[in-house]
């Protein structure tokens, strides 16, 4: 009964709703990683891991996920061979 609320001067407090919605929306806006950045990250990860083990580059997926504790970067990297590469390899 919002008209009763206003009659008795009770706060409908839509500003509080606005504030919490804004905080959430802006948090997502700010942490949005661009496709370009994700691609560069993928290249970096491939380069680093390939020095040690054989991975399936084509099957690799990199993505972001939002959870309660903020945003996570998730890399799904299929391994071709578990045998460690020798120092001379690639």
């Amino acid at each position: 009964m919002s008209w009763l609320d206003s009659l008795f001067g009770r706060k409908s407090a839509s500003a509080q709703v606005a504030k919490s919605r804004l905080k959430f929306a802006i948090q997502i806006d700010r942490s949005n990683l661009s496709a370009e950045l994700l691609n560069s990250l993928q290249e970096d990860i491939i380069r680093a891991i390939s020095q040690r083990i054989d991975i399936d580059r084509e099957g690799m997926k990199i993505s972001t996920e939002r959870g309660e504790n903020g945003q996570r970067l998730i890399a799904d990297i299929p391994i071709k061979s578990v045998r460690p590469k020798t120092a001379s390899g690639e």
Binding site: S12, A15, K19
Partner: peptide, 17 residues
Amino acid sequence: GMVKRGDMLATEDVLEI
């Protein structure tokens, strides 16, 4: 008036965000 009623973001709210 709207800020006072809690129906508009106050200056402090906007600055905090």
